[in-house]
Each structure stands twice: as C-alpha cells, then as structure tokens.
Design a protein around this nucleic acid. Structure first.
Lengths: 347, 347
DNA sequence: TCCATTGATGTGAGCGCTTACAAAATGGAG
DNA sequence: CTCCATTTTGTAAGCGCTCACATCAATGGA
C-alpha cells in the first residue's frame, strides 16, 4: 500500500532496482557506476528499471561505503558585498566541473564560529576546505595542517606559512595605482590603509610607499590614514584628510568600499570628483563601475582566485603529495572617471 | 604504524572510543547523543577518550543510520549583486540555529542546471530545498510537489500555486513609491518594468498604475518602458524616456540596478539628480546607499525573507502536514536623495 | 531476604551502497 | 564436443553509526 511513499524520500534502493530488473544488486551497482563488465542487454534492462522506479542514488550511503563525500566546504565571513560572491562563483564553477558539491559556511565575522566549524567539519562530510578571507586563521590552521587536512586559503597572505594560499599581487596593484596618480601630476597623495593585521593591507601600503619613493616624492605621515576596510573608516579618513592644512589632491583607498565612503564626504563638502580631488580604490567590486563617477580602481581577479584555489585543492585531494602551492594572481589597474590630471583640476 | 594516519581522515570511530574507555560502542553512541541513561562516571570516561583520541562523529554514517542528513539545499541563480547574498544571510543564520548545514547550488542563470540539480538532489543528501529567485520553476516544481519534497520559494510569486513561497508586497511598495513621487508634485512619472514574466514585475507595474489612477493621473503608455532587471535596460530606458517630446520629471525603476543605469544616462546628458529629474529604485541593495546621490528606493526585507522561508521549510520538515504557507513580507519606502519636490527642480 | 523496578550497559541488525572474491555463463580453439 | 580463458553475474562483508531489544546491576519496599 505505501507504494506511493516509496517515492517520497529516496526509498527506492538498488535492491528494488535489482528485483525489478531481475539481476543482483551488485550488477545494479555496476550499471550505476558505469563499470565495464556488464552485458549491454543487462545494462539496458537495469537502466529501464531505474527510470521506471525513479531510482536516485543515495549519496550518503555511497559516501560511507566509498569513504569519500565529494563535498568541499567553503568558509566565508559574509556574502554582503558581492566581493566574496565573485570568489564563490569561481569556486563553484570549478567544483561543478569536477563533480563536487559545495557546502557553504559563513561566520558572519564571528571569529568563534570559524574555529568551531573547522574543528567539526574536518572529519565527516567535507573532504576539503576553501577558506575565504579567514579572519583568525591562527586558531585552526594548525589543526588543519597537522591533521593533514586538505585546505587552501584565498586572499590571505598573513602570518601563516604552511598552508597553500591564493592571493593577488597587492603590492604591485598599489604601486601601479599610485604611479597612475603620480603620472597624472599628483604629488600630494593620501592613502587609506586597511586592517593592518592583514597581510594584504600591509602589502598595499608598501606598494604605495614604494611608488612614492620611486618617484622621489616624500612620504608625509599625515597623508596616511589607518582604516579598517569598512565604509565608515573611509568617511572618517576623508574628513581628517580634508581638514589638513594642505589637503591631498588625490586619495587612494585600500578598498573600494572605503573609497566610496570618501567620495561621499568629498561631495558633501561641495568638492567635485575628480576635478577637485581624484579617488582610487582597490578590489573592483561590482558596484564600483556603477557609482558616480565610476571608480578608478585596482581589479582583483576575484573569480579567478576562487577558480585557482579550487584547482589547487582538488589537486591536493587527488594527490596528497602535492606540494603546497602559494600563488599570487596579477592585479590590474582599471582607469575610470574618478581620477584626472592634476593640472586639469578646477580648484 | 599508521597510528598517525588514524587522525588523517576521521578514522577514529566509536569503536575506538569504546575500546579506549572500556565500554561498548552503544554506550559511546549514547554519550555522543546526550542520551539520559548513562552513568555520570561512564559519561566522563567516554568524553575523555573522545578528547584524547580526537574523535569526531562521521556525519555520513549518522545520516545514513538516522535517515536524515540535516542538510538543506539552497538553489540560487547567482551571487553577484549582493541581493541574493542578503537572502542567504537570513537562510544561513536560521539554519545555523536549527543545527542544519547549508549546501549551496548556483545555476548561474543556466536554466538547464536548475532542473538537473533539483532532480538529483531531491533524494539523498538534501532534506529540503530553498529556491531563491527560481527562473524556470515550472520544470521541476511539479516533481517536487508530487514527490512531496519539502521546499519553499523565495521571491517568486509566479504561475505556480501549490508550493509554499515567501515574497514581498511588491504591489504596495510600488504604490508607495509612486505616491511618494506624486506627493512631491510629479505628474509625469515614467516606469521601467522588470522581466514581465515574473510575478513581482507585474505586481510592481500594477502598483505604479494603481497609484496613478488613485490620484487621477492619466497613464501615458510612452512613459512605461519594458526592462529586464539588468543595468543595460535601465540605460536603454532612460535614453528612450529622455528623448520623448515631453520627458518625465521622475523615473521609477523596477529595481535598483536599472535605476543606476538610468542615473548614469541622466548624468551623461548633463542633467542633475534630483534637481532635473527624480529617480526611485526598488530592492534597496547594499550599494544603493552608496551611489550618488543615495537612491530613494523600496526596501525589500531580504534577510528577513530568507529567514522566514527557512522557518517555513523547517516547520514542514518537522511536521509534513504543515499547511503550505505563502507569505508576503512588507516592503518599505526608503527616501534618500534621488528624489525631490517637483517645484524645486532647477530645470 | 527476596522480588520487582528502574537504570545502565551490551548486542544484533540494518541504513544503502561498494568492493573484493567466488561462481556461473559464454565463446573460441582444439 | 570438450576444455580453458574470458566475460558476466552473484554474494559476503563492511563503511560508521543508530535504535530496539536483551541483559545485567542496583535499588527499595514487603
């Protein structure tokens, strides 16, 4: 009687298929897995039964028996800005090609959760872990490494040295952006840093400084404002910078979000971008092209990062001996309309 | 010798723990699951062994034995804009509280994949499905419903009538926004529609029309431009609208992204927002507050939608008899700086 | 002191699948 | 027709866990 219910929740097993097609369950398994030694007629008969019964394999059981889940965990802080969404797009796509599923874990910036997740995920359902923008990696990277659990970091070149990691050429990007400003004739260029405990923030600052000294422009401490990657710190920075006795003619922010914060302030003060002051960001998040004026920024190949990270992880899974790879993907200066020649400025 | 490898991949089983603590595997299972009938001293002994051995339960096996996975699938088209990120935030948080994991599936707007996923996911690892902004639900909603597979739609009030769904009061939001413009003295208000095969697009258009007729303002067909929710259609719309013999004094776009496209055009034509023309969007995506000028828009309670959808799904899981619930969450007009009084306009 | 309870623990079977390995069927060659 | 080498198919065991049931220990009342 509960014939109908058979459909309800994966109740159709290989045994049912076996019975329906008059073969043993072993043969059904062979058919499912496309193994060679099955007579063509038999294969067809089994296939028919599968269709007829609506059989779908139970991945749990398969995973248990095989000892592998084909699920990769992705640990991200948040999904708000689209920044991480882009990275996930790359991860997801690559995973899809490889026949893996993606389990998403968000920490919402609650550090405790990061460690929690990692600790309990490590064994069981997830075969590998992509850690995007990890905040407190020190807590668990040790565990991961010592247990030899496959994982890869994205966009974090911090203290840790042992884990494979995918980053971008932050230094170079910052250098290029600063040089762009210099080439436009600016020589009083402010810089808004990111959260300085992050390696990328440090690198960007260094790139800025390097470009300055390369062009024999003195570093002025007052022009460097410590931000935290959030919009509000861009606001605070711009306010402070604009209040300077000699305000900068250009501001380079360590990310787009802070740059947008700064743009707000500038406009509220009745100044024009880029006429009165040029602005450069970093990241090239989707909305950077949409703001007004479209933001000149340094593009990070977000999707690409996710893609490469996944490839590295998958390679490790396939061959545990794979050397830890730490890669830096190239950043790229995207010139839009928030920067202009110093001599053109209206003020 | 491979003592070390025991750590490598979840090799520590309840049997190891049982042996190490001198009890039976059944007792270990009891301890793990916090079941009552275990002597306190025994429980402690087992716990110690668990810690010592670094035992972590194998969810696959547990799922298989229990017949439930505690994994919910979330099917989304993309993660680009942050719009969906917000929804996921709500889903994720709610799932987290309930002890469920979240498996993410993206279709990247490839319709075929949607059906694929749904077909094979239905059985096996995922216990329920949250379908966010489904594009071609007709393909598989039938399967889902007939198999009685727990699922809920988010932000799609289309043709289908049988599945539980969470939406927002699109009509009302559009009505309010239009009325806002009318109250500001505008009576030549353009409207950019969304993809008209989506229920929400239809509702928004209806809300716009209703507000107009409520205030005895004639509907002018030329002022209604059919868009597709992408930025480019906002650009096209604005161009067409501005070329009209009598261009509108205000434009209401069916989503923020199109509104931004329109803003671009307006500025490129040397017009000012809102002085020359007012703009209203819909959604209140994160970047809407960041553009210049900050966009007046209709807020959809994105995170809340995810949250409610998840609650509904979880309720269905707990009690399969749960009545299909279709809810509409309230939208809210967010007045920022892209709209102003008609009489104040400069032009 | 003895038995009935109740609480604590051990055991067997089974979740749905894979994966050896064994058994049976097939098909040339001799 | 045999016989042996190949396919092809069947079967047992096991992946790591849960759950129902059986068993055993401890307790308290008569």
């Amino acid at each position: 009687m509960p014939r109908d219910e058979i459909q309800v929740s994966g109740r159709v097993t290989i045994f049912d298929v076996a019975e329906a097609s008059g073969v043993s369950y072993g043969t059904v398994s062979r058919v499912i897995n496309n193994e060679p030694h099955v007579r063509e007629t038999t294969r067809k008969r089994v296939m028919d039964a599968i269709d007829r019964l609506g059989f779908v394999i139970n991945r749990q059981a398969q995973s248990l028996a095989r000892g592998q889940t084909h699920v990769i965990g992705v640990l991200v802080p948040d999904l708000g800005t689209g920044y991480i969404g882009e990275i996930i797009r790359g991860i997801d796509d690559e995973l899809d090609h490889a026949g893996f599923d993606l389990m998403l874990f968000t920490t919402h910036r609650r550090a405790a959760k990061e460690s929690n997740y990692v600790a309990s995920l490590v064994q069981g359902v997830v075969e590998g872990l992509v850690l995007v923008l990890p905040r407190n990696p020190a807590d668990y990277l040790g565990v991961l490494s010592s247990r030899n659990f496959p994982h890869v970091l994205v966009d974090h070149q911090g203290v840790d040295t042992t884990s494979p990691a995918i980053g971008t050429t932050n230094w170079q990007g910052a250098f290029l952006a600063t040089e762009h400003l210099i080439n436009l004739g600016h020589n009083h260029i402010a810089f808004i840093t990111g959260t300085m405990d992050l390696g990328c923030a440090q690198d960007r600052l260094d790139g800025y400084k390097a470009a300055l000294s390369m062009h024999h422009i003195p570093q002025i401490p007052e022009l460097i404002f410590e931000g935290d990657f959030f919009q509000n710190s861009g606001v605070a920075a711009a306010n402070a910078l604009l209040d300077l006795a000699v305000p900068p003619s250009a501001i380079f922010a360590s990310n787009d979000v802070m740059a947008m914060g700064a743009m707000d302030v500038i406009r509220h003060r009745g100044l024009r971008i880029p006429d009165d002051i040029s602005i450069v960001g970093f990241d090239d998040i989707p909305q950077s092209a949409m703001v007004f004026p479209p933001l000149t920024t340094v593009r990070q190949p977000l999707e690409q990062m996710g893609r490469v990270a996944t490839q590295v992880l998958l390679a490790m899974l396939k061959n545990p001996e794979t050397k830890n790879s730490r890669q830096e993907l190239p950043t790229q200066l995207v010139v839009r309309s928030s920067t202009c020649n110093y001599k053109d400025r209206a003020g």
